[in-house]
Structures are given as structure tokens and as C-alpha cells.
Design a protein around this nucleic acid. Structure first.
Lengths: 341, 341
DNA sequence: TTGAAAGCGCTAACAT
DNA sequence: ATGTTAGCGCTTTCAA
């Protein structure tokens, strides 16, 4: 009868020792076979592999990570899963990281800085080899923890500011400016804005501010705006535009805080027979496929979320390989002129 | 001078020992304060807490998990992040699990069973307390590993079959049948189908099969179908419908493999002046908010993805608390009659 | 309420 | 090519 295991976990408790005993070799030999490290005799290898299969051994990475260096864990903290933007980034990250054997530990802040602080601490406890966070704005204590962690930190989706370590993303200020310039060029002067919760979505706020500044410089005017205190959605955009138009009839172009919102705006116009862009021009942000598949493709600024995720992943891999990495990677957006403005 | 650390990791190497030394107590006392376990004197607690702050200690969950029982890790394996459906489920999971201190380790299979097998092994190595996988179909070796793991296994999004342990989801067969019955009731008889990659998306395949069977029983007929060998998307739905209508002019209702596809179909009709549902009826699956915000709300079957995630999370929590849990949780879909069929 | 000793399952370092 | 020894950072038991 085997030595009585100390804890509940005992069910799965097949360890290296069991394999070693079965194969008639030492533990370290089994370890080497499993990690394909060091030189092993052909016969021994086969013996061990057979034993592994026989006892149904599953390596224990928790023990492995404690004994050796790397955890192969990458922490990822994003504000939301509702907005397709973050799953897109996640996809890019996973695409480059998973194939190299790294696992993603994911957490969602709901756009709350205090939650972010808490999650950073929680993830750091897993000794990830890198941590990906969203945006450049964090609580002071969050920044301190991130700095002190001594690992690669990638801030994604924004480059308007100083990164803690590495930033991969785009300039939201530039995106806001470019759209304003485009609309001014098209001759629009009387603007509306329909946005979501700018208090929490700091990047949307940067676009908003830059847009307004450029509009003002270019002789345009913000006639009115409608801010919905919710997460962005097609529904919110649709009702936001309805509300805005109810208050102001003299608007000729509306800038939305993103494509989801703008698509809602387009739907409102479709449903109410408002000619776009004849009576009202509509512009968004993100360049979602959906907006481009509308009967009239949406005028917007395309962001490269998947690419940002990939490049963030590549930056991490490069760092872990000891290579130098640029501290800011600009994944420039591009204006999609579309047909709605 | 401190003892020279053995490994590279050394930068962050603030350990319990450091805190203990600083506070002038033993390691175990620090451990107890941090985990709020056992009784600790008020003074000692303050002393330790001050020391923790002073040395900037971040607990090491890897060491903690090795020494104790639980890892507080939940593995999650989904087929895709492109389709909003899975982020929705993930959101539900995170919503219930994260607030209880569990961390999500995420992996994406790209709908490939071999990849799933590989990822199950990789995640199991982290000794998660539960593992969430998608669907009821897996490779034999995957099932064997899952069974042998001795932890809670939740299969989400499908209940048409025998769960390994717990299944939380809906019946795709029923969804397919219900939509077919609805369309037949509306008087449609000449059907088309526009779908995505059914070889890999097994749940879409179940809907497809049930739909066709019910149509046949009800005196309807499948005039033609167009299967796009890609992931589902608005773009694919739009071009799929274009292709289908190019081949067959005598179709009066089209069932799409999901809402993304169906919305693409609606866009095609909008762009080409095809009256919906007058000339052509359109039906989807999922009940995405987007489809309901279209000028005419989409006829579809609404699934409760977020709820499925939540219930999967709750089932896990219940199990970990030692409670009995039902082996199949049916989160029924509901027909949204909409206005496109 | 606090501590000393032992060990979780694995791997680095140093033999042989 | 293989093995021995020590110890990763923490928590469990058992004692005081």
C-alpha cells in the first residue's frame, strides 16, 4: 500500500516518482525525457515514455515553475469583453503566444481602475513572465506594482503618453483629429457627438477631445452632444442619435464614440428615412467589418486590434529572448472614407 | 550581504522570509496574517502588515499552490474569439468566478479537436480546480484526460448528448427544429441555407441537420444551400446569400447558420432592393443585439450566452463547495419572431 | 497565539 | 548518459 498522501488532491496524484519507479530510472531522468532536455539514451527514452503512458502522468507545472525559472504564464488585463475590440487584441496575443507554449491568464476590469489595481496584484502573484494591461492611465499604486514586478509590461491600445515599459497601440488623439479634418474637408461645419461613458473609457475621451479641438480650429462648431452613461452598443448609438436629433435639428454630421455606436446611428437613419449622408453624415471609429458590410460602408478610422495583439505578443517574445524592444510601437490607424460622410 | 540567489528571477525575489525578518516573527505567522487564517494577535498583525508594505511583498501563488491544496485556477477552452458568442460566455464565467478569487486561464482551439487535446493537457498541468470546455464532442484521448483529471469538468453551449461531468447550454437540435417549424407555420416551403464551415462547428451542424429534417417532415424543401468554408461573419453571410440567389431564384426563405451570417444576408437584400420578408425571408440564430437593432429586427432564436457562462461558473463554485450539481443545465433558447420572416 | 520541522513535485547544479 | 543532493517559497502538521 502506498504512502498515504497528505491532501485531498490525492486523486490525481501521479508524480514523477511514480513514473520513475515504473520505468526503473531516477526522477531527473524522467524529467529530462519529458522536457526533452539534456541527452537521453534511446532505450531510456522509450522506457520512460511507456511508463508515462502507463501511469497516466500529467506533469505538474506548478511544481515545475517553482523549481525552475519560467512560469510560461502571461497575464492579460482588459477592461471589457463586451466590446469586440478586446477579444480581437486577445486573439492576436493568443495567436503569437500560445503556439510558443505560453498560457494566458485573463482578467477583466470593467473599466474600473481600482479593480485593475487589485487584478494586477492577483496576477503578479502567479509570477507571470509578462503582463499586458490596457491603456496608459493607471492608479499610482498600480504603476508602482508594475514597475516593481521586474517583468515585461506591455500597455496596449494607446500610445499617447509615456509607457511604463512597452506600449503597443495607436494614437487616439490623432484618430480624433483625422476624422475631424476629414469631415471639415467634406464641408461639414455643424457637428454632433454621440458617445458612451467617457469617464471610464479614457481612450474614447481622448478621441473626443482631439475631435472637438480640431473642429474648433477648422471653423466648425459642436452643436450638441449626447453621452450615454453605459458601455457602447448598437442600441445605445441608435437611441443616442434619436435623442440628439430630438434636441437639435441643425446638425449635419455626427461623430460617434465608436463603430458600434455609429452603426446604431445608421440604423436609426435607415428606420426613419433620414438620408445618409445627404441629410446627416455619420462617422465612427474602429473599422469593424460589420460597418464595412453595411449597404453604405461606414466612414470610420480603422484600427488594427488583432495586429496590436500580435505585436504585443512578439514584443514579449523578443524580450524574453533577451532582445531589445522599442518602447513604443505605433500601429497606425487609417481613415476609411466609406460612404456615410 | 544576502545569500546569492540561484536563479535569474532574483529581481522580484521578496519572499515570506524577508517579511518575517523585517517583522521579527516567523514565516508561518506572516503566512497566517496574509491568508487571514488562524488566530493572530492584533499587534502581530499590524507589525506584519507594515513589514509587507515596507518590503513590497507580493505573495507567490505558485509556491502557495504547491504547498497547499487549491490553485484557484480555472481553465477555459473555447473554439474562437472571433465569434462574439464565446467572449459572452467568458464574460459570464469571469463575472461569477473572478469575484470569488478564481483566475481564468484561457486557451483557444480554432475549432480543431487535436488542438483541444493538446490544450487540455497543457491546462491540466496547471492543476486547475475546474476546466471548462466547449461542446460535447471531443477526441477520445481528450475525454480520457478529462475523466482522469478528477476535477470538475463543465462542457458549455450544448446539451445534446452525454456530458462527461456537467453540461451547461442549450439544445441546438431543438433550436433548428423550432426555427423550421416557425418558418413552415408562416407558410414558407422553398428553403435555402447559408452556412459556415459545418465540418468544424459541430453545433451549427446540429442546427442544420435538425432544421432540414423538420423542413422535410413539414412538407418543405431545401432548394439549395451555400456553405462558406470559413468562420462565420457578416461578410461571409452577405456573399453567401449573393451566391445562393445567383444559383436559385425560387427560394422564399433562407436559414443562416447564425446571426452574423443572417445580418450579412439582410445587408445584401438592403443593398439590392430585395424586400424582406416580402420577396425573401431571413432567419438566424443567437439573437445578437445587433440583429435586433436592425431597422427590421431579425427573426432568430435567442441564446443566453452570458447566462450560460454564469451558470457554468456557479456550477463550479457549487462543486468546489462540495454541493451536488445537476449534470445537465438547460438554458433554453427562445424564438424571436422579429420581422424578417 | 506562535513556532519548528517536514515536505508539496519538480529541476539546477554538480557529480559520476 | 544518468544519478545525487539540495532547495524553489510556501503551508501543513504537530508542539509549545
Amino acid at each position: 500500500m502506498a504512502k498515504k498522501p497528505r491532501r485531498a488532491n490525492a486523486g490525481t496524484a501521479v508524480t514523477l516518482t511514480d513514473v520513475a519507479r515504473e520505468a526503473g530510472v531516477s526522477e531527473i531522468t524522467v524529467s529530462r525525457v519529458i522536457r526533452a532536455k539534456g541527452s537521453i539514451g534511446e532505450k531510456t527514452r522509450e522506457l520512460v515514455e511507456a511508463a508515462v503512458r502507463k501511469v497516466g502522468y500529467v506533469p505538474n507545472r506548478i511544481a515545475g515553475s517553482l523549481a525552475s525559472a519560467g512560469s510560461d504564464l502571461i497575464g492579460v488585463i482588459i477592461p471589457s469583453l463586451t466590446n469586440t475590440v478586446f477579444p480581437d487584441v486577445l486573439r492576436g496575443l493568443d495567436d503569437t503566444l500560445a503556439r510558443r507554449g505560453y498560457r494566458t491568464v485573463l482578467s477583466v476590469t470593467g473599466y474600473q481602475p481600482e479593480v485593475e489595481a487589485h487584478l494586477v496584484a492577483a496576477l503578479l502573484a502567479w509570477r507571470p513572465e509578462a503582463l499586458v494591461v490596457t491603456g496608459l492611465e493607471h492608479q499610482l499604486d498600480t504603476v508602482a506594482m508594475l514597475r516593481a514586478a521586474g517583468i515585461t509590461i506591455v500597455e496596449v491600445m494607446d500610445i499617447d503618453g509615456e509607457p511604463i515599459d512597452i506600449a503597443v497601440g495607436m494614437s487616439h488623439a490623432r484618430a480624433g483629429r483625422e476624422m475631424a479634418a476629414h469631415l471639415l474637408r467634406r464641408g461639414y461645419r455643424r457637428f454632433g457627438f454621440v458617445g458612451h461613458d467617457l469617464d471610464h473609457d479614457l481612450r474614447a475621451r481622448k478621441r473626443h477631445a482631439a475631435f472637438l479641438a480640431t473642429v474648433a480650429e477648422g471653423g466648425g462648431r459642436l452643436v450638441g452632444e449626447c453621452i450615454i452613461e453605459q458601455a457602447s452598443s448598437v442600441r445605445a448609438g441608435r437611441s443616442g442619435l434619436a435623442e440628439l436629433l430630438g434636441r437639435h435639428s441643425d446638425i449635419d454630421a455626427v461623430y460617434f464614440s465608436n463603430d458600434d455606436m455609429a452603426i446604431g446611428g445608421v440604423f436609426h437613419c435607415l428606420a426613419h428615412g433620414i438620408a445618409v449622408p445627404g441629410q446627416l453624415a455619420i462617422a465612427g471609429f474602429n473599422g469593424l467589418d460589420l460597418g464595412q458590410q453595411l449597404p453604405q460602408p461606414l466612414t470610420t478610422v480603422r484600427t488594427h486590434r488583432f495586429r496590436i495583439g500580435q505585436l504585443a505578443g512578439e514584443a514579449i517574445l523578443a524580450r524574453l529572448a533577451g532582445k531589445k524592444v522599442e518602447s513604443t510601437v505605433d500601429v497606425a490607424c487609417d481613415l476609411l472614407t466609406g460612404a456615410t460622410a
